[in-house]
Amino acid sequence: MTRNTRRVGRPSITSKEQILTVALQLAQQQDLAALSLRQLAKELGISPTSLYRYFENKQQLLTAIGETVLSVDASALPAGLSHPQRLEKLLDQLRQQVLAFPGLLPQFNNSLPAEAMVATIATLAEPIKAMQAEDSLAVRHAQSLLWMTLGFALFESSSSQASISGQFLDLPAQLQNTSQHLELENHERLWRELVERNIRGIC
């Protein structure tokens, strides 16, 4: 009897989507900088040559991961939300997805998922347009909100490290009146206040 050597619970590789699913799993478990196509092929139980048919290099893989992480799904929102509430939920969705892959943003460089980012801006712009904003202004608002969310998620993941947050506390006396009021750990409250201020500015 021939022994089945395929990994238990791992589907046979028949599509780019299945490969990307496993790549996303690996990306959540380790530093993205260390992820390689050879490692991915080994995890999938296929040859690197087979994998190269889908992704020619790591940049293409990072772009595909970025396209997944930076996409938002308006159809997943609960029914009956107001336009500001829809916008807030979309921003929450984006933030959580980026936080799940904290090493992704610094890896973009030449693998920026521009198409996915513009599509996300378009999705964010829809509830803003419904708030009576003119199309071009709605898009610019959405662009700013995208940058805001990515920047906040990057701050949130880095400031969670004690070595980073400690640098904000060990400051000269003339800065301590400001530093004592910084929110370095209560990210959720800081995020809610940030989103509320920005959406209120649109409304």
Rank of each mutant, 00 (worst) to 15 (best):
H141M: 09
G151D: 04
L87A: 02
L124W: 02
Q107D: 07
I121W: 00
F152S: 03
P113T: 10
E88M: 08
A133I: 09
L105M: 11
P127V: 03
L81F: 04
M117I: 15
E88N: 11
A142K: 01
G80A: 10
W147K: 11
W147R: 12
Q132A: 15
A119V: 03
A122N: 14
R95P: 01
L145C: 05
H141Q: 13
R95H: 13
L146H: 01
H83S: 14
A116C: 10
L137F: 11
A122E: 14
A138S: 09
F152C: 03
M131G: 02
L91K: 03
E115Q: 15
V118K: 08
S75E: 13
G103K: 01
R95T: 06
A79G: 13
V98L: 02
K89L: 15
P106C: 08
P102Q: 06
E126L: 13
A153W: 00
T120G: 00
E134W: 04
S111R: 01
F108R: 04
Q132W: 11
A116Y: 07
L99C: 08
S82H: 06
Q143W: 07
P106F: 03
N109C: 09
G80L: 07
D135T: 13
D135W: 03
K89Y: 11
G80T: 11
R95F: 02
A133C: 11
G103D: 09
S144M: 14
L91Y: 03
A138C: 05
S111E: 04
E126K: 15
I121P: 00
A76D: 10
P106N: 09
L81C: 07
A114I: 13
V98I: 15
R140M: 13
A79D: 14
A153D: 01
N109L: 13
L94H: 05
A138D: 05
P84H: 09
F101A: 04
E115N: 13
E115D: 14
G80H: 09
L150Q: 10
A142T: 05
Q85L: 12
L146A: 05
M117A: 11
S136M: 11
I121Q: 05
V118S: 09
E134I: 07
Q85P: 01
L94Q: 06
M131V: 02
L137G: 07
